[in-house]
């Protein structure tokens, strides 16, 4: 039955997508395009573009899109529930364990080392994305403006995001 197959395929991919959405993409390429033939490579490029331009994690976006292509609305539900099943199980397990052991001095020691590692990772991502998205003068201006608003004002980040979208629109339509 196709719904069950979709569900299980995305459960499997969900389990292996450690380290963010982009890992998921290579899994999709193998499992969905090469092995099962549910999507063509050209459609895959569409999925990527759409995922980038819509809110939400890439894993959820691509599961919903591919599920719909394969088996309609029910298919998109099956694939999306599939991809979040591993997260739900593993995070609940981790949360339960942490609740019991968070105060333990050795666990606290591990976390004291994890904190700078997490910051280092975010900084690495910031450098990577700055290099790939700040490609012309308007993009540099928008990024700098958004950064200043985020750091020096109490404006909500969502408002800053909206203002940046409006800045992009007005730039494109004025010039």
């Amino acid at each position: 039955m196709i719904l069950l197959q979709l569900y299980l395929a995305f459960v499997k991919m969900g389990f292996f997508s450690i380290g963010g959405g982009y890992v998921m993409l290579s899994l999709i390429e193998k499992e969905i395009i090469n092995v099962r033939g549910w999507l063509t490579s050209a459609e895959f490029v569409d999925v990527l573009a759409i995922s980038e331009m819509t809110p939400g994690p890439i894993a959820i976006n691509s599961a919903t899109f591919i599920g719909y292509r394969v088996a309609g609305v029910l298919g998109s539900a099956a694939a999306t529930i599939g991809v979040i099943t591993p997260s739900l199980l593993l995070v609940l397990l981790a949360a339960t364990l942490l609740k019991r052991f968070y105060q333990n001095t050795w666990v606290q020691a591990v976390f004291s080392g994890l904190r700078p590692a997490v910051i280092g990772l975010i900084a690495g991502a910031a450098i990577f994305i700055t290099r790939t998205t700040l490609i012309n003068v308007p993009s540099v201006i928008i990024a700098l403006g958004a950064f200043i608003l985020l750091i020096f004002t109490r404006l909500h980040p969502i408002l800053v995001l909206t203002l940046s979208a409006l800045a992009g629109i007005s730039y494109q339509y004025i010039f």
């Binding site: 993009s139 928008i142 403006g145 958004a146 940046s164 409006l166 992009g168």
Partner: peptide, 11 residues
């Protein structure tokens, strides 16, 4: 999106 992309870098 030409505005949202640089904002993501700023975020």
């Amino acid at each position: 999106f030409s505005g949202i992309r640089p904002a993501i870098a700023a975020l």
